[in-house]
Lab assay of single mutants.
Amino acid sequence: QVTPQEKEAIERLKALGFPEGLVIQAYFACEKNENLAANFLLQQN
């Protein structure tokens, strides 16, 4: 279960064009650090 703040962060990451499953994995792998997760996702392409 995610908090409203976490859900907002996940939605912002999804808005970058990444699928939800990948976003969630990256977000939690980066210890819920939205900026770190965004950098991680962008570097995967």
Rank of each mutant, 00 (worst) to 15 (best):
A38P: 00
Q44E: 11
P19E: 13
K7T: 12
P4K: 13
N35C: 06
P4C: 11
V2T: 11
V23W: 00
K7V: 13
C30G: 03
T3M: 11
L13D: 02
K7P: 03
E34R: 02
A26T: 12
K7M: 14
F40W: 14
L42G: 12
N39V: 05
Q5S: 15
Q5P: 11
V23K: 02
A29C: 06
Q5W: 06
F40E: 09
Q25I: 02
F28E: 15
L36N: 05
P19V: 05
Q1N: 03
F28Q: 14
K7G: 12
E31S: 07
E8R: 09
I24D: 12
G21Y: 05
N33A: 03
I10K: 01
L22Q: 15
T3C: 13
F28D: 13
Q5D: 08
E31Q: 09
P4V: 11
A38G: 09
Q44D: 08
L41K: 00
L13P: 01
Q43E: 11
N45K: 14
N35R: 14
Q5M: 07
K7W: 10
V23L: 02
E6I: 07
F18P: 04
R12V: 02
Y27K: 01
E34W: 04
Q25G: 07
A38C: 09
Q43A: 12
A26W: 04
Q43S: 11
Q1H: 00
L41E: 01
T3A: 06
A29K: 10
L41Q: 00
P19T: 11
Q44S: 08
L22M: 11
N45E: 06
E20H: 12
E6F: 04
V23I: 06
A26G: 03
A38I: 15
F18Q: 15
L36C: 11
C30K: 08
K14L: 09
E34V: 05
L42Q: 15
N33E: 08
G21V: 11
I10G: 00
N45D: 11
E8H: 12
R12I: 01
F18I: 07
Q25C: 03
E20N: 14
R12F: 01
A29R: 08
F40R: 13
C30M: 14
L22V: 13
C30Y: 15
L36M: 13
V2L: 10
L22N: 14
E20T: 07
A29F: 02
Q25D: 10
Q5A: 13
E31C: 06
L13R: 01
A9G: 05
I10V: 09
P4S: 13
E6N: 04
K32G: 07
L22H: 13
Q44T: 08
E20C: 07
F18W: 14
G21L: 08
V23P: 02
